[in-house]
Amino acid sequence: MVDPVPLAEPATRALVVQHARLVAERADQHALTLESLLAVLRSTRVDDRAARVEAAEIASAALVDLRTSNDEERNALVEPVSRAFLRLRNDLRPLVRFGAIDIQFVEPPATGRALPGEVAHAARAIVRTAVLAHVDRGTAERVRVQWDCDGRNLLVEIRDDGDGSLDVHDDTVRPIAERVSALDGDFRVQSTDGWGSTISIVMPLDPPALGDRIEDAEALTPRERDVLRLVVAGAPNADVAAQLGITVNTAKYHVANLLRKYGARSRAELSALAR
């Protein structure tokens, strides 16, 4: 086994993290585009011709976004909370119009504090992930998305009317939990059997700086080294647990510790840094 070695230069670490994040965000956007196309093509609200026109518009918009997106926009220092929320609504517009889930939006205060770029991007990605997870689960008919600011934190609430089986250990919300943990935020899930679930997130508007939190390889425990080796190899938590003879929750605990030590916001970033 080759032990992970921390990257020597902060600038190099920043480039690796940035690349991994952009790849992850692009994958997230592509998943949303494909889900939107499927929603239009499966919809009974429009005829075949209208569905083709709408699908073409969605694909064209996605191509324009892909060709015109740039690092300057993605890494903007700050973004007004109202504009960040509007971009989220635009992302989810096709699913709102044609999807099987009714998505309701509660606008944040227009006077709320501007969001750091990292927080704005993470918040949009979190909501997109949650909505797509509900689409995949197929147990909810309505999802309510609400943002608010208390001056120091962005408050995100995602409520559904599903079967109430969601919990913090569910693999469908694992990417959300990892993003929130890496930003030193708070993530909670409250469910009532048969009455739905509520995901509550508190994200600090002044997250810790990237690149300054990577520990020396010697700071990893032997178990963390084993977990990291499997994560880098692409193993999900269930496979990590099976190969190491530990529970899935223990595997998730070790992954969360590794994300915190490496200052990574996702498994993709963690793998990129460890390599």
Rank of each mutant, 00 (worst) to 15 (best):
R21P: 10
A242W: 10
S82P: 05
A177R: 15
L34G: 12
I103Q: 04
I176A: 07
W147Y: 09
R42C: 10
D193K: 11
D161E: 03
T12N: 14
D150K: 08
D206C: 10
E25A: 12
A122P: 00
A76S: 13
R113V: 08
V173G: 01
E79F: 10
T221S: 14
S36D: 07
I199Q: 06
D148H: 11
L258F: 09
T198A: 08
R225L: 14
T12C: 11
D47P: 09
V96L: 02
D136S: 12
A8P: 04
A27C: 12
E178H: 11
R260A: 15
F105E: 01
A242G: 04
P204W: 10
G185D: 09
L258M: 06
D28G: 15
F98H: 12
T139A: 10
D163N: 08
D212P: 04
T198S: 05
N153K: 02
M1F: 13
P204H: 12
V189G: 07
V78T: 14
T44G: 15
A140P: 00
L92P: 07
V189Q: 10
D91C: 04
I201R: 00
I58F: 02
A110E: 12
T12A: 14
T247W: 01
R124C: 00
E79G: 00
R267H: 03
H19W: 09
A62P: 00
D163H: 09
G99R: 06
R89G: 11
L183E: 06
L132G: 04
Q18P: 05
G99Q: 02
W195V: 12
G234H: 10
D170H: 06
V143L: 14
T68C: 06
M203G: 06
V156Q: 03
A209V: 14
A219R: 12
A11T: 13
M1S: 11
A235W: 13
N249G: 13
A62Y: 06
E178I: 04
A122T: 02
A256P: 05
V173D: 00
N90Q: 14
G112L: 08
L77W: 05
L230D: 03
A84M: 01
A251C: 04
D193Q: 14
D3C: 05
A272D: 13
L244H: 04
I246P: 07
A84S: 11
D226Q: 15
D161T: 03
A272H: 02
R179P: 03
A62F: 12
L15Q: 15
P116T: 02
